[in-house]
Amino acid sequence: MKAQARLVVERDQDGRNVVRDLRSMAPITLVPHRSRVRSANEPALVHLVSSVTAPLGGDDLELVVEVGEGAHLVLRGVAATLALPGHLPGGSRARVRIEVASNAGVQYVPEPTVVTARAHHEAELVVELAAGALLRTREVLVLGRAGERPGSLTSAVRVRRDGGPLLNQSLRIGAPELDGSAAHLAGRRVLGTEVLCWGEDPVEPFSHDWWSLVPLARGGSLATSLAGDAVTAQTWLDAALDVHPGWRSRVV
């Protein structure tokens, strides 16, 4: 299955964040939240729903998101993604591209991705931030369902701001010699990462044995956790958010 979905959010004359363009394509279904009248400054809230079991082997999915000047978007998943093997060769791919204009912000928070046995999945997130744009994105990768050996996953995250690179990381999961190595995943089943370019960066790293929040070299910060289960991995990412100076003093 090949699919391309698109979402554009802008700030209107009254300062409200409005969804200007929204094109879903199965299996990527975008559901804007319209249950109440939004006041100015409240971010647009859109849920990301998978309407068909995906990604399956052979799938090629792309989501393009644009957030216009001064606008704010929260894009949330509603259920865990299960990367599954399919009957087609070549594995599955999911790409998300997000462009954020100046003084705009996006929170992209999908639910955890579970890499099931024999799946072969590539995920890519590319974010282009204008100067002064804000970003928060969380990724939680789970190595197989309970008692299951994981298939293989490569997850790449690239964030650039004002044309320069802030973060470029490509993580490989599902190679036993790497999963078990203390240098890589240390035999832990869940890897959580969270990128925060949200106001003031931490000056010093915060570190505990299995999670940390570190300032990146050229702005922005990264939280990392390695845990035995997804709840713990996310609790540690929450702990990292709690000590992030820019996030703690956020106004939107």
Partner: peptide
């Protein structure tokens, strides 16, 4: 850009 979460946590 191969990453190594374990080494990052050990280094910090």
């Amino acid at each position: 850009a191969p990453g190594a979460p374990g080494l990052d946590l050990l280094a910090e």
